[in-house]
Design a binder for these strands. Structure first.
Lengths: 219, 219
DNA sequence: GATCAGCGGATCGTCAACGATCCTTACGAC
DNA sequence: GTCGTAAGGATCGTTGACGATCCGCTGATC
C-alpha cells in the first residue's frame, strides 16, 4: 500500500469547481497509474475539496471514459487496452478525416499560413531531433485543423477520445523513425487543405491515422 | 407556471439509481419540452428520488449533451438547433461508414440473413405505409450494423449522438416520400455488407447519411 | 489441510440542512 | 418616464453525518 501524497506540486489550492480538471490532468500526466484505485476520501484530502466535489468529478471522468466505476466498489483509473486504443484511433481516423475535408473548404488564407508555419516548425523539430517539441506541435496541428473545420460536435468527440489514449499516443512518438513517417503525412494534410481539396484532405488525414494504427499494432 | 405532474404513468416507483434513465426517457419522449427548466427540487418530487440522485442524474445527462447546465442557474433541456443536428449527422455519417466497412469484413452468414430479413421487413413496411414500423426498423438496422462491426468505441459515440437528435430524426421519418428514398439506401448498405465489400459498404452508408443531411437541410 | 460461515474494516450511496449566488421585483431619485 | 439601487425569493452548491454494501480475515468444522 503506497503512500498517496506523491504530487507535491501544490494541489491544495484547487477550487472545488474544477477538481475534475485536476484529477483529469493527474491521470493524463501519469501521476495516477492505470488501475490505481481512486478513493473518494483520499482524493478529497489530496485536492482539498469536499467529497461531494470529488464524487461529482469522478462521475464526470467516468463519462469521459477516463475512470471506471463499479457500484459500491469505487473508482479506478481505466486501463486502455491496445485493442481499445486501436478502436479509438479508428474513430478518430474517420472523424478527423471529416474535419480535414471541412477545413479544406473553409480555411482562410490567414489560417492556412498558420497551418503552414506549424508544418515548418514540425520539420525543423524533426530535423533537430526534438521529440517532445514535435509531439506538442503534433497535437497543436490536429487541434487547429479541427477548430478550423468549425465542427463543434466532432471537436467534442475527438477531444474525449484523445484524452483516453494519451498514454498510447505518447509512447508512439518515442518510436525511433516514427517522426519522419509522421511528418510527411502531416505535411500532406496541410498541402491538401491549402489546395482547398476536401476529398484529398480527407484521404490524407485518414492515411495518417491509418499509419498511426499500424504503428500501434506493431508497437 | 404550469403544473408539473403531467406524467401520470407511475414514475413514483423509480429506484434512485436510474433516475437518470427516467429523465432521459422523458426528454427523448418529449415529455419535457426543449428549453424547459429542470428544477432539481421539482424533479426530486416528480420522480420520488432524493435531490442528490436528481443532481447526479442531471450531471450525467449534461455530459451526454441532453441538458444544459449553468452555474447557479440550474439545468434546462438542451434545444438542438438545425445546425447542430446537421453536425451530428455528419459525424454519424463517417462513424457509421466505418462501422459498415467493419461489418462487411466480419459479418457471419447468420448475421447477414438477419440484416436481410430486416431489409425485407422495411420493404413491406414502406409498401404498407407503416411509417412508425419503418422508423423502428430503421433504428434497429443501424444499431445491428454497429453491433456487428464489433466497434465498441464507435457504438458509444453514435449512441450518445443519436440521443441528441431523436427529435430531428423523428420529424424526418414523417416527410412524405422520404421512406422510399431511405429504403433504397438501406438496402444498398445491406447488399454491400452481404457482398463483404468494406469500401462499397462504407460508401453506401455515407451516401445514406448524406441523404439524411440533405433532407434535414430542406426540412 | 481445505472449506465455509461469521465478523470487522473500509468504502460508497443517501439524506437533510446550511450557506452562497443569482434573478426578479419594487422603490426612489433624477 | 427612465434609470439605478436595494430588498426578497428562488435555486443551486457544499457540508457533515448516517446507513448500506462489499471485501478480506479469522476461526471453527469436516
Amino acid at each position: 500500500m503506497p503512500a498517496q501524497e506523491q504530487t507535491a506540486t501544490g494541489p491544495e489550492a484547487a477550487a472545488q469547481q474544477d477538481v475534475a480538471a485536476a484529477i483529469r490532468e493527474a491521470i493524463v500526466r501519469g501521476d495516477f497509474a492505470p488501475n490505481q484505485r481512486l478513493v473518494e476520501a483520499d482524493l478529497s484530502r489530496q485536492f482539498g475539496a469536499s467529497r461531494s466535489g470529488v464524487r461529482t468529478a469522478l462521475f464526470e471522468l467516468a463519462n469521459e471514459g477516463l475512470v471506471e466505476r463499479v457500484q459500491h466498489r469505487g473508482a479506478r483509473v481505466r486501463a486502455v487496452t491496445l485493442e481499445e486504443a486501436i478502436e479509438i484511433s479508428e474513430v478518430r481516423m474517420v472523424v478527423e478525416g471529416l474535419c480535414a475535408a471541412k477545413a479544406a473548404e473553409r480555411a482562410t488564407d490567414e489560417e492556412l499560413s498558420e497551418l503552414r508555419s506549424i508544418g515548418d516548425a514540425m520539420r525543423t523539430a524533426v530535423a533537430d531531433g526534438h521529440v517532445m517539441k514535435y509531439s506538442e506541435l503534433n497535437q497543436l496541428l490536429h487541434r487547429r485543423i479541427i477548430e478550423i473545420s468549425g465542427q463543434a460536435t466532432a471537436a467534442g468527440v475527438v477531444e474525449r477520445l484523445r484524452a483516453q489514449n494519451v498514454r498510447h499516443q505518447f509512447r508512439l512518438a518515442l518510436l525511433p523513425g516514427r517522426p519522419n513517417v509522421s511528418l510527411a503525412e502531416h505535411l500532406a494534410i496541410i498541402d491538401e487543405i491549402g489546395a482547398h481539396a476536401p476529398d484529398a484532405a480527407e484521404r490524407a488525414a485518414r492515411r495518417h491515422l491509418a499509419s498511426v494504427i499500424e504503428a500501434l499494432k506493431t508497437a
